[in-house]
């Protein structure tokens, strides 16, 4: 994460330790007067608690060996920041507001360093400290991002499951209406769902309906072929239905060989064929 592995000097760490209470006081004050203050989302007591805990963990980390954030001395800070960021995200804080919480520690800290006469190579120490705080602020936004990604991932999965239903439409006949495009992951789920349904229902015919599929590429065509081949290995036959003219053109254009897979123009036509296989016919009753 940080290539520059210079340590904060023990002088600086000592100073921060000594003046922890004053720094904390300054810091809380500056937070309470900042634009980003959100007492509507979190009370002052909690803000004070979090600030105190973070400053304490940070001081301890600075005193330890290792400036890489994956080093053991930074674990407490990482854990705490993750917790705070997640809690604030849940409470409704924006990523900027949370990052500002960390960054607002820059002033109180640097001011103490500047007003001290004891620190040698002051410039360097200040820059190091600012770097570290920047990194911690970035870390809080990363926590937000990861939470967003996890949410998106979960929703995607939920949608995937919703969009791959296998329906039994007659004794021994399954229908798999596909909607949208199929990536590798989803087509595997679809195949799994279909094969499991064949296994549990004992259906010998599966109609894969492509009416809701706007376009098809080589990869998706291959997935379809595999689904059909796997169904056949189990002893069930697939019928493809609802192939749109555009898709038919693509299939021809890509020179995809659908082999001897049975195809029908519509789901209704496919059902008729499937029923006929079982010797059934739909007629109007007198």
């Amino acid at each position: 994460m940080i290539k520059d592995l210079r340590q904060i000097s023990t002088q600086t760490v000592g100073l921060i330790q000594e003046q922890q209470d004053e720094i904390l006081k300054d810091w809380i004050e500056s937070q309470l007067t900042a634009d980003t203050l959100r007492l509507d989302l979190m009370d002052q007591k909690k803000l004070e608690q979090e600030s105190k805990a973070l400053l304490k963990a940070l001081t301890a980390a600075l005193g330890g060996q290792g400036r890489d954030f994956t080093a053991p001395n930074w674990q407490a800070v990482n854990g705490l920041l993750k917790e705070i960021s997640e809690a604030r995200d849940k409470a409704g804080f924006s990523p900027t507001e949370t990052a500002t919480f960390v960054l607002s520690l820059r002033h109180p800290l640097v001011e103490r360093l500047l007003s001290s006469k004891k620190i040698s190579s002051l410039d360097e120490e200040v820059w190091l400290l600012l770097d570290i705080l920047d990194q911690l602020a970035i870390f809080t936004t990363e926590v937000y991002q990861r939470r967003r990604e996890a949410t998106i991932h979960r929703q995607q999965e939920e949608m995937e499951e919703l969009s791959t239903p296998v329906v039994k439409i007659w004794d021994g006949i399954l229908a798999l209406p596909l909607v949208g495009t199929l990536d590798t992951r989803r087509s595997q789920m679809v195949t799994e769902a279909l094969l499991d349904a064949i296994n549990t229902t004992g259906a010998e015919i599966a109609i894969i309906d492509l009416t809701g599929v706007p376009a098809i590429d080589t990869r998706m065509a291959q997935h379809l072929m595999r689904t059909v081949a796997a169904s056949r290995l189990m002893g069930a036959n697939c019928i493809l239905s609802g192939i749109r003219p555009q898709i038919a053109q693509t299939i021809v254009h890509l020179k995809i060989n659908l082999g001897d897979i049975k195809t029908e123009s519509t789901l209704a036509a496919a059902l008729k064929t499937a029923l006929a296989t079982y010797g059934l016919k739909v007629t109007v009753s007198e």
């Binding site: 195949t191 094969l195 499991d196 064949i198 796997a230 290995l233 189990m234 002893g235």
Partner: peptide, 15 residues
């Protein structure tokens, strides 16, 4: 006639 192939076996074989 080959009968009763398990779903996971069929999928793996095709892959």
């Amino acid at each position: 006639v080959l009968v009763g192939m398990q779903p996971a076996v069929a999928m793996t074989l095709v892959e």
